[in-house]
Design a binder for these strands. Structure first.
Lengths: 147, 147
DNA sequence: TGTCAATACTTTCTATGTCAACTATTGCTT
DNA sequence: AAGCAATAGTTGACATAGAAAGTATTGACA
């Protein structure tokens, strides 16, 4: 039964899981050490800043960060308390509430972005050789059902 | 600043993250639906069964499942309560306690293994084309610092 | 042999996330 | 316009995991 676990394909899968765990751990540890924020906060800062108008609804933020709605509310709560983001009620639709960066949030992002980009470079991108990028991009697109 | 986010390499990294989240979600959902256990329990069952003598110490189980020691204790607690595994004190070293499968645990594994192997096949392995396996294996090995 | 650092596991405290129920608001349909 | 399903966000109950301190046991070494 477990012999199917010993194929090269399964081994790749297994390494995929371990690599993911390792990367997440190190990204989080580095961001906490250098910038004093967890990876989840960095994610929010980035996704707010990437949005047109530098503002996101909770729902969209949930899609981007792959979190549940309740989870987003609480994550944003903590970041509001820390002063990195603020909520701004939408005029057009009073159910909506936009998440925006505060000055402090913008500063924190400017500080954390190079840190995180360096980590990604060092732990992930650096190991991409020759055609690896294209191969892996194709693979992940298929996994995600894109195109 | 964010322009480095728009390179093909970063895009691969981003898809890697999204793919991981998607796969974990679906594996867990399928195992819960079909076999009524979470992915974390399946992981434990597999790692116990793969061990020589079909028994693992908590410490080793933690290394295998990438979990903290306290996390392992409680995860095993829950599975003991559910009757899938049991703890067996070590004679040689009375600090150690081995985790072993119960009959019920062995049955559950026999039921869950094909389910999970099918999921992995369908959601991951199926999308590996031609030389993809070798390319990705090499990449993940480098990421993990193997060899 | 007595001491003490290391090891194995447990436990407490806390952080964080999910699910489902709830509230408010919107906008479609008649 | 009234009714009502859909949408946005919050909240309560609960599940789970990590960090660090605590307990028991082992083994090395003076």
């Amino acid at each position: 039964m477990t012999n199917r676990l010993e194929t090269p394909e399964y081994r790749v899968f297994s390494r995929f899981l371990i690599a993911h765990a390792k990367l997440m751990r190190e990204f989080d540890a580095t961001l906490r050490e250098v910038c004093d924020i967890p990876l989840s906060w960095f994610d929010v800062l980035v996704h707010v800043s990437l949005e047109p108008g530098q503002r996101v609804t909770h729902t969209r933020l949930g899609e981007r960060t792959l979190m549940s709605q309740g989870g987003v509310t609480r994550l944003v709560d903590r970041m509001v308390k820390a002063g990195l983001v603020a909520r701004r009620a939408s005029r057009a639709d009073r159910r909506k509430s936009y998440v925006v960066l505060t000055d402090s949030g913008r500063e924190k992002l400017a500080e954390a972005m190079p840190t995180q980009l360096d980590s990604i470079q060092e732990l992930f991108v650096q190991h991409l050789e020759d055609g690896d990028t294209e191969v892996m991009d194709g693979f992940f697109r298929r996994v995600l059902g894109l195109e």
